[in-house]
């Protein structure tokens, strides 16, 4: 449905076009004909129940996984068909905030943030220091630059990781479950940071999450994935008023609905009687 309008639209930084994907070790398809478009300069939220492969989607965009079918275009280039060297070039323009933060445990916070700069630029150490301190200032951790990642709290290490992922001023930043396991205060801090960074740096952001309330306050556009496809998309207001039963269940957190409370199983009566028969 989206495919015809998507093609080469300059307003979209990332376009996902009718992809089919399953992991090598299983035959179970994670996506069947999934399509979505990520508008440039906006915050897009991708939501859905646990286990439907939201993180996988980010890895597909980052080129760490390849879909069996379909295209994933970043600024017009089809990521799955790129050579390794081209992919590495492209990755300098995007960055990803991992759920665990993924700070390098053998470096200080300062060195962690300086790492991408040292790898990819020929800047002098003085210049790198300036940039690192600015990035740390942006996430409020300038005072923590000499600490090791193990000494940081969960919220702090995620903020440090955020500082690292914006070190190279990417065009796209992908957040993998940024709110998971955070206390309300650090959750508030991270929401504020995502919003601010998006506005001040003109970033395009993709947030993968299942924390509905938090993300609806900052997202410009929302995709809901279930059943291997996009089941609903639109602005937060449009979705909240949606009459799609699945969207409704997810956004309002109802226990039972189109996504059933019970894992697939024969009815209780059948199972109990069946067990009796087997004796």
């Amino acid at each position: 449905m989206l495919t015809t309008t998507l093609e080469g639209n300059p307003e979209h930084l990332v376009e996902i076009d009718d992809i089919y994907f399953h992991y090598n070790h299983s035959t179970h398809n994670l996506y069947e004909g999934l399509s979505m478009a990520i508008p440039r300069g906006k915050i897009t939220a991708v939501m859905g129940p646990s286990g439907i492969g939201k993180t996988t989607l980010l890895r597909l965009i980052g080129g760490q996984l390849r879909p069996q079918q379909g295209q994933i275009r970043f600024a017009g280039q089809n990521i799955p068909s790129l050579k390794r060297s081209e992919l590495y070039q492209l990755r300098k323009r995007m960055s990803m905030l991992f759920q665990s933060g993924a700070l390098f445990s053998d470096m200080t916070v300062y060195d962690n943030i300086a790492f991408p700069l040292r790898e990819h630029s020929r800047l002098s150490e003085e210049l790198i220091e300036t940039i690192v301190l600015l990035k740390l200032e942006a996430v409020g951790l300038r005072g923590a630059r000499h600490l090791m990642p193990a000494e940081l709290s969960g919220g702090m290490s995620r903020r440090a990781a955020l500082a690292r992922s914006i070190a190279l001023d990417p065009e796209l930043i992908m957040y993998d479950e940024p709110f998971a396991g955070q206390d309300p205060i650090s959750m508030g801090v991270i929401i504020k940071l995502i919003k601010e960074l998006n506005e001040s740096l003109g970033l395009t952001s993709i947030i993968v999450t299942h924390d509905v309330e938090e993300v609806l306050t900052i997202a410009d556009y929302v995709y809901i994935i279930a059943d291997k496809q996009v089941v609903g998309h639109g602005t937060p207001e449009q979705l909240l008023n949606s009459d799609n039963a699945l969207v409704h269940q997810f956004l309002h957190g109802e226990a039972d609905g189109p996504v059933p409370f019970h894992y697939r199983a024969p009815t209780l009566a059948d199972e109990l009687l069946g067990a009796g028969d087997a004796k």
Binding site: Q89, M94, M96, F98, A102, E119, L168
Partner: peptide
Amino acid sequence: GLMKATEQLSSLEMMAVD
């Protein structure tokens, strides 16, 4: 293994470092 489990290897890859 720990670097892999804590996504440090993935993170390197996403930073365009092999």
